[in-house]
């Protein structure tokens, strides 16, 4: 072994993208080892959405009017269900300490974790939603706008939700508090997401709502990992 130099830094500075790739690859691998959790969340989504036609009756006009809102609210709840997973396990087994002490920038590592969370929890909802939309008698055009809206909106849900998950790391009543913290932040995503489908049904273009969802996503991509990193450091201190 060569001796440590007393002055020069010992490890090369690590790049942000490598950090994103590390966290993304590891969390995807972990998720694939516990497929049941992905299945539970997806099944929850399907069941919540399917309960509504049973509850409000089979009136086609009513279901068509309710459909977009129901699908979006169910997506919000399903997303909420999976949020604690982002940090809880890593915190309790000590991995989060190692992640925070890694030479990679912490926001980059957290970005990778959030991306993995979306790929395993958000994307399945997006893929499943047109199928569930048919239950509500949505037209082809409405279904495609619904899917596009969810495709842009669900990453925002993962990003905003990760802030809440990071703030509630290690708290005993974390789950309930997380819902209280995060659901109000989800409201704009719900309004524009469901609003996009309503606009199409009324014969307007959905581009305004979709653009706002996209803008929200960009802001969240920039801001959320930094906020999460600050919260994680506070949790470890």
């Amino acid at each position: 072994m060569t001796p440590f130099d007393a002055v020069a830094p010992s490890a090369p500075s690590a790049g942000a993208w490598e950090g994103v790739a590390w966290a993304l690859a590891r969390d995807l691998r972990l998720a694939l080892r516990s497929k049941a959790e992905i299945g539970v969340q997806l099944l929850f989504y399907v069941i919540v959405v399917s309960l509504f036609p049973l509850g409000v009756g089979p009136e086609p006009a009513l279901l068509r009017a309710l459909g977009p809102g129901v699908l979006w609210v169910a997506a919000l709840l399903a997303s909420l269900l999976s949020l604690p997973r982002i940090f809880t396990a890593d915190f309790s087994d000590g991995t989060l300490e190692q992640i925070a002490l890694s030479p990679y920038p912490l926001p980059a590592l957290i970005s990778g974790k959030i991306a993995a969370h979306w790929l395993t929890t958000g994307l399945p909802l997006v893929v499943m939603s047109p199928l569930l939309g048919i239950q509500f008698g949505l037209s082809g055009n409405e279904l495609s706008i619904l899917a596009v809206g969810l495709l842009v909106g669900t990453p925002t849900l993962s990003l905003l939700g990760a802030i809440g998950a990071a703030l509630t790391i290690g708290l005993r009543a974390g789950g309930g508090l997380l819902a209280l913290l995060i659901l109000p932040l989800y409201a704009p995503v719900l309004i524009f997401g469901a609003g996009a489908v309503d606009a199409v049904r009324a014969g307007f273009s959905a581009s305004a709502q979709l653009s706002l969802l996209g803008a929200g996503l960009l802001v969240a991509i920039v801001g959320a990992p930094i906020a999460c990193a600050a919260a994680v450091r506070i949790a470890l201190d």
């Binding site: 830094p9 010992s10 500075s13 080892r33 396990a89 309790s92 087994d93 991995t95 300490e97 002490l101």
Partner: peptide
């Protein structure tokens, strides 16, 4: 400091699935 320290605490930082 992060690039210089190796910390091994009580928690083993192992993933049960791996």
């Amino acid at each position: 400091l992060r690039a210089s320290v190796l910390y091994i605490g009580h928690a083993t930082a192992l993933k049960d699935e791996f």
